[in-house]
Amino acid sequence: MGFTLDVEKFRDAVVELIRRTSTNLPEDVLAAMETAREGEKDGSPAKSVLGFMLKNAYTARENSTPICQDTGTNIYLITIPEGVSLRKVESAIVDATREATKKTYLRPNAVDPVTGKNTGDNTGTMAPFLHFDEWDEPAIRVQLALKGGGCENVSDQYKLPDSRLKAGRNLDGVYRCIIDAINTAQGLGCAPGVAGIGIGGDRASGMIIAKKQLFRKLTDTNPDPELATLEKHLFHDLNKLGIGPMGFGGNTTVLGVKIGTAHRLPASFFVSIAYMCWADRRRSMVFKENEVSYD
């Protein structure tokens, strides 16, 4: 069961993955928005805005143009078979990113923080962002999410205990942080969003766990029953806040809540919230030697 990487083929497959991710919203997200639309009052701004978002998504899919002009941070989770060169995979993805920018699937979005210069092709230090894992399959799996700046700016991290929120170092404390974070975000992250949550870890790994949750399907159930209950509870309560689509008011403030955990130090307890906008662009592909499949 060997696997030899054809770099050129792989690169082209990644360009296609970027195109699909940028222009074609996943089915589960569309379905959640359709349901949300049903649940809003006739004639309300919430209903018309959700309708407009959906129409936008279908138009983008049809015309193969970006759903949103902010094609965001490109976050990759890559799973490779043993022995495949990380450097080759990385450089193929960087090339694919350049190509996809040229084709306007991506907007030039990588800015040097010191000089203020935009590289023009979405590549730079830690851009795109790559995270590697290994598996036993003779294939490379690539998962991609495009996360825009508006929703990244309202993402947040709390340190427990938090006296303002009367939040202790337990799941009740976590609940309080998330209610506070989504209320603080209002419509600014292009609500209705998906809350990816990381409990524990350090400041970096906690946020990575939070972001990894954004790759889960909205319809899945957390394998940990306690977390599954918390996800449901939060989904219900957050939608009572009345913030609504774009913060215009309404019954739909979040489309999903997904929670993961990482072991923490005895001395620290972080709650990390990665807010993803309704333009919840994530796709994946499995690249085999002579076959590519996309989801």
Binding site: V49, M53, T59, N63, P66, C68, M246
Partner: peptide, 13 residues
């Protein structure tokens, strides 16, 4: 005036 954030394809039309 608030436009619908993220509705880039439709607004471009």
């Amino acid at each position: 005036l608030h436009a619908v954030g993220g509705a880039a394809a439709l607004l471009a039309q």
